[in-house]
Design a protein around this nucleic acid. Structure first.
Lengths: 357, 357
DNA sequence: TTGTAAGCGTTATCAC
DNA sequence: GTGATAACGCTTACAA
């Protein structure tokens, strides 16, 4: 068990100085053919690789990106990570993952843990608790320390940074318009409480689609689920709630749900109540995950393109990091002027399956 | 935008030496009450946090764990990550994630990238291509450099390290025995090609269960899917293959599938062929993921306890890392003697749902 | 009680 | 063409 070899050891072994070794290995032409050869051969033999930590300290950059997300066991988020990892890797970066577990405190702890030199910048999606509290000081503090942040999906106006979002509003509009086009008269919405920004936007899209088609929104047709009660592990509660909803609204022709789980549950409940899908009720969900594809009937969804979101976020962040290199101290012509932040909107796409006509 | 403050800056500001600051902040009683107070107050004011990279370099340990897995968009793997992250965090470690994407080369590149000082140890699951090639030199090389590895799920005898595995064999036995107990006569197996060790073990469990019940295995009842053809995105092919299988074996009473996707697909196909589940055919899958829970009918599965696997792996790794601290150079009484490696077997559990009686 | 200096592994600058 | 030195930020023996 021999520890990794260092420049110092090579130098000693070959009886040259450390700097000679360093230069030889970087093919500096200050060093003679001969010694360069000798040193490179030796280095290869002992499989020398420069120590990343030392490089990080020297260069004051780690070449790693911190990802901070609420939850990893979630198709959408893991898809985003895959996208980030892909471009990060291609561009020579590593990826370090922190999970907030939807908790404000854990989000802060994780950020502080990573912000102390371990990473060059963040890509993150805000936890539910943070959204509820509306306390974003830790993001701004991090940015003020010179560490760039890219937010995706769950973003917030109060923080000035690059953002990548899904076009939640128009995605919802498209979905509901499709239901209308398919002849649905009474269209229900199954959504979350409003503090989750994406839920809110999708709800607004639903309303917009109705209005622009001259349909009056009926608040009885809107079911808001309080998902703080961890429906993931409490399916019965969720299904009971939806069943109740269906019973008090026997005239539902179409359902638009703001996530996959709600949509699939709605289908399940509807079928238990003897309704045929898509003949009696048509269903569209948001988020294109495994469930949608494999449900029976398979679910028509609004796809979020998670991987693309990840890729774009990573590109945005790395672009900014590498731009800093070129113009290290960006100057402002006056203190009103800010660096422009980019807000990328990823278009959604409806993937048609069996749950709609 | 003020960069993070350093000891040096604090020292300068307060007109003391760097070491005084360092000591004061670590509450060394070498330093007087007075200066300690003053320094700590100042540090707090400027929100001083020691630079992780500098600490890593000094201590020659990074307090971060490298995870290397084939794929992240997979319920099982993301569950494992969650488990790892949980205990890592609790024990003061960070987690850096690399994806091999089932590729041998990417596995190696990723390992080299991380092994150069970025992490203290690996937790990994071997890529399919590596298993196929049976080339494990990179794992052994890493271990020989003094970097501990914990392997989980897809492990291999050729590498000496701690391992955490699922009891695939007995899980399969249990599942098939359950089908037999439920009165199934002709029990089919849907599995992968043999090079994936877990698939192989589950297949062996299937055979064992049949044999111990005096049932002769019928090779016609075994369907091996070549999943190198990316069935995830090629559902039609998969379903066609399964349909063909059902048609040539009209007497199937029970199906044991080595993963969730195969099981759910089997149910889908069976129902299309007019078979009732669980009345005509009973189905059990391996891997307890989202699909199982939400399929119609919901799927009885052998649960792998991914999170527990992650937690145990992390504990194993960190235990070993911290043991190294105590006895830095472990000596061998003779060179035959090796440090004992632990192989933890996580028991499976059958989760009964609607697809079995 | 405080400060100096060495060292973790590297690279860049400057001197020989 | 080669080597000594400083620096990245920190800790710690040792000196004052």
């Amino acid at each position: 068990m021999k520890r990794k070899i260092t420049l110092k050891q090579i130098a000693k072994e070959l009886d040259v100085s450390v700097s000679t070794v360093s230069k030889a290995l970087s093919n500096s032409k200050e060093i003679s053919e001969d010694t360069t050869q000798k040193i490179q051969a030796f280095a290869k033999l002992y499989n020398y690789k420069p120590n990343n930590i030392a490089l990080s300290l020297k260069n004051r950059k780690t070449k790693t990106i911190g990802i901070l997300i609420p939850e990893i066991v979630h198709h959408f988020f893991s898809t985003v990570i895959r996208g980030i990892e892909r471009v990060a890797n291609r561009r020579g970066y590593n990826v370090i993952v922190g999970l907030s577990n939807e908790s404000f405190t854990k989000e802060i702890i994780n950020m502080e843990m990573l912000a102390n030199g371990s990473i060059d910048g963040f890509i993150l999606s805000i936890s539910k608790e943070t959204l509820l509290k509306q306390d974003y000081h830790h993001f701004n503090a991090t940015i003020n320390q010179g560490m760039p942040i890219v937010m995706f999906d769950r973003v917030v106006d109060e923080v000035d940074c690059d953002k990548v979002i899904v076009d939640d509003f128009n995605g919802a509009v498209k979905a509901v318009k499709k239901l209308i086009g398919n002849g649905c008269k009474h269209i229900a919405l199954i959504t979350t409480l409003d503090y989750v920004s994406v839920g809110k936007l999708r709800t607004q899209g639903y309303l917009e689609a109705l209005q622009s088609n001259g349909i009056e929104a009926d608040s009885n047709l809107i079911l808001k689920i309080d998902d703080s009660l961890d429906v993931e592990n409490n399916l019965d509660v969720l299904e009971a709630e939806i069943a109740q909803f269906f019973k008090s609204n026997p005239n539902i022709h179409g359902v638009f749900a703001v996530n996959e789980l709600y949509a699939v549950s709605a289908m399940k409940v509807a079928r238990k109540l003897g309704l045929k899908i898509p003949d009696d009720v048509q269903v569209i969900g948001f988020t294109d995950g495994v469930l949608s594809k494999h449900a029976t009937p398979s679910l028509t969804t609004v796809s979020q393109h998670g991987q693309k979101i990840g890729e774009q976020s990573a590109n945005l962040l790395i672009d900014r990091l590498e731009a800093e290199d070129t113009q290290p101290e960006q100057y402002f012509t006056n203190n009103e002027q800010k660096r422009d932040f980019i807000k990328l909107v990823i278009e959604t796409e409806i993937i048609e399956r069996e749950s709609t006509k």
